[in-house]
Amino acid sequence: MADTQKPEKRGEPAVALLLTWFLPGAGHLYLGRTVFAAAAFLVVESFFVLGLVLTDGRTFEFLDPELRGPLATVLTPEAGNLGGLLWQLQKHGFGAEIPGPWPPFMMLGTWLCALSGLLNVCLMVHAHVEARTPRGHAGQGLSPAAYVGLTWLVPGLGHFFQGRRLRGAVVFLLLVGFFAWGTWLAEGSNLSRERHFYYWSGQFLAGLPAMVSEFLSGRPRVTGEMPLGDVGLLFACMAGLLNVLAMLDVCGVAEKRWLGLPTEPAAKKPEPAGGEAGA
């Protein structure tokens, strides 16, 4: 008789995910991974606190006054670390009433805060998959969270590490190409969170290419008319947003491999030859 009993899960995936969202490591603590939870908390919150110190908590001062409101920060990478974001809003709000010069390491600080959110998203994926992994089951290959992180870092890199090299190459050329094209059309004006707060959040999802470009460009000044500046801004932002689809793609395949599920749909059984059918 076939064994129909489902293997025991380690916990509720949604609970693990939500706990991690509010507090990095909390989901892993719920799953009994105490050491991992402590390490995860330390890493994510170190990024966040260091970023907060370097920016004096003034990241959201970039927002125009008319855009400031309770939901204004939802579409930022920092929202991945919800507990940190709420704490920042509670403590610093949208910055000082009177504008002043930015701290010397403002750009680095905003990157670190944004990175803490993105790292926590990877942790949320990790906690969700861990919760669904049956007890005693050793996952195969890298964790899906690692593939998501690699794909964020360089679009296509996660596919490459999964052995899907053609797809990885297409994703890389397409997304990095669009980011570069957009940056060229916008004459580098897109590479500033202060100037384009929400578009920056989108292009940050293109990972290293966006960060390196911003670092090297030194946020160039706008000195003349840019006929296709808006299109460039859109292209660079879309490159980041489309990288989310790439992350979901690698995550789906990695999850199946990790859990030992078939990655391809089951092939149709060949129909039996007429004479031998119904034997």
Partner: peptide
Amino acid sequence: LFVALSAAIVVMASFYSDPDD
């Protein structure tokens, strides 16, 4: 430019929909 961006959206959506190249 819109057609070019559409092509990128379609390629990525197609990849997301089907893991088989």
